[in-house]
Structure formats: structure tokens, C-alpha cells
Design a protein around this nucleic acid. Structure first.
Lengths: 145, 145
DNA sequence: TAAGAAAATGAAAATTACTTTCAGAAAAGT
DNA sequence: ACTTTTCTGAAAGTAATTTTCATTTTCTTA
């Protein structure tokens, strides 16, 4: 089942309506590998669909997060970002504090140790965030000058 | 060198002034093991020092973070929190999404794997955040009912 | 110690990101 | 088509944080 189907099913199931705006936002959102903030996605959409408002973009991103098609990210810059969930492997992020580049990483051994830690405290993990901040390879070279 | 000394040295070095407000805020902040938001610390301070303003508390917490005496935490509830840095071992957090309890954990093996991941991408880690969200032992028992 | 320069304070205003409101527009059921 | 319900977009409202500004305080320097 593709992502458009997942979304339309979710809308129907919730008694919500399938509007052209929602479809456009979903499509543009999916066809990118970026980590959009609401603002950024709104600005991008405005080029091709100038009539779509900020609030609609915001509300749609929330919906996408609800139905599992997007995940909310927060890198401490005061803006919530969204990335498409491709149903693949869970990943975390390296964030370059100089150029803003975001690299995704997968490290199952860390996931495993997390579980171990949680168990130590009788804690039941529902979600987590793990972000490494610093300089990406380009920027750490650049800053040596 | 104690923390008051670190702070006064930092102030002098930056050409900033050593005021009674700053000292009071530092003292109250250090004498607690909580993870204060600006609001919470302001309210606590107001009981003993009603003349201290919110903005001063906010500015002082920022200063403490700058000079390494506090670290900023962000658990996604829209409030920045601060905890005293005791120069001890680095720790991360388990956050109970039901009762708000915050448990600190230390897991050097995770720290080590992080470094390994960073190396994989030629990335130089400056800081990181790692938080596990879920139910603490009390709350997971309570929610079984 | 007093005077001057520089910075801090606290109240209020401004900013920022996000969320809600509301009147008109669009979708889905009848 | 008609009716009900939900959406939309613009604008207003929130909440946390940050800045402004007139006044006060601190830290030299005379």
C-alpha cells in the first residue's frame, strides 16, 4: 500500500476530507529527502501553489505525523522539522551546527543498549531521540583554516 | 575551584558585573537537583527574592550555560530546562511522558558507539542529546489497570 | 570616597513559532 | 442538487523567549 493510499485511508477512517491541498502537500513532502520545517515547506509549496496557506501546511504535517507518514524532529533550533517515514529502518541524526547538514545514521547496537538501560530502571521506552551535534566533514576541514 | 568562583571568574573575564541577583540565582540553582525551566526557577526565587525579574533569571541561566555551569535540556514540551553541570560524568535522560519524572543515566558504551558512528561520517561531535521517552516503573504499573 | 563610564535590572513590548478562530469554500453523504 | 460536515486561508491569539529602555547598580579611576 503506497503512502497516498495510507493517507486517504486514514482520512476516511477519521471522517476527514480528501482535499486537493492535502494531496499536493503530501506529494511535495514525499518527493524530497529534506527535513522540512513548516515554514520551509510552506515557502517551497508557495512557488507552485501560491494559494495554499501556512496553516494548512501546518495542519497537514500534523496529520501526516499522526498517521505515521512523517516524523517530527527537533534539533534545538526552535523549529519543528518533519521527515517522511519510509517504513524502513529506524535512524537517528548527525546535525552539522555550521552548515545545517543533516546526516542519518543507523546503529542497532545503540538501540540495543538503550533497551538495556531502560530495563535497568524498569522503564518502558515509547520513543527516543538521539542527535549528535558538531561539524560535518566539509565543515571541519573548512574550519581548520 | 568551586562553582561560585568559576562564575565570578567568567563574569570578570567577559567584562560583566557581579551582581547580587546573579549570585542569588546561581546559589538557588545549584542547591537543587531539579531540572528547572526559567519559569519554575523564577517562581521559586520570587518567594525569597520578590524583586528579581523573569528576564534576569532568564539571562542568568543563559550565562550559566555559556560558562559551563548549566546545561540546557529540551524534552519537547516546549520549555527549555536547565540542570547544574557538576563536572562529573556525562549523563543522558529517561523522561516519563506520564508523570514527567526525569531519570539520569550513564552508559559509556553508548558514548563510545556514538564516537564510532561519527567517525564513520568524518563528523566531529561537539555535543549530543539522547533521550528515552516512555513510562517510568511507577507509571507503567499504574497504566496496567 | 566620589564621579564617570559601562553594564544590569525589571517591566513592558517585541519576536518567533505555533495554534486557533471564523466566515466563506469545498467535499461527501442523501 | 441539497445538506451537512469539514476545510481553507487570513488574521488573531498563545506561549515561551528575547529585546528594549529608563533607571539603578557596579566597577574603575581620579
Amino acid at each position: 500500500m503506497d503512502q497516498i493510499q495510507i493517507f486517504t485511508d486514514y482520512l476516511r477512517q477519521q471522517g476527514l476530507k480528501n482535499t486537493s491541498q492535502r494531496m499536493v502537500i503530501l506529494e511535495v513532502f514525499l518527493n524530497s529527502n529534506l527535513h522540512y520545517s513548516t515554514e520551509e515547506l510552506y515557502l517551497k509549496l508557495r512557488k507552485s501553489h501560491p494559494r495554499i496557506g501556512y496553516a494548512t501546511v501546518h495542519r497537514t504535517l500534523k496529520l501526516l505525523a499522526e498517521c505515521g507518514l512523517a516524523s517530527e524532529l527537533n534539533f534545538g533550533d526552535g523549529q519543528t522539522r518533519y521527515e517522511p517515514c519510509r517504513g524502513g529502518q529506524h535512524h537517528d541524526h548527525l546535525v552539522c551546527t555550521r552548515c545545517g547538514k543533516i546526516i542519518e545514521f543507523v546503529e542497532p547496537r545503540i538501540e540495543k543498549l538503550q533497551e538495556e538501560v531502560a530495563e535497568r530502571y524498569g522503564f518502558k521506552i515509547m520513543s527516543h531521540r538521539h542527535e549528535l551535534y558538531g561539524l560535518c566533514s566539509d565543515c571541519s576541514v573548512a574550519s581548520e583554516s
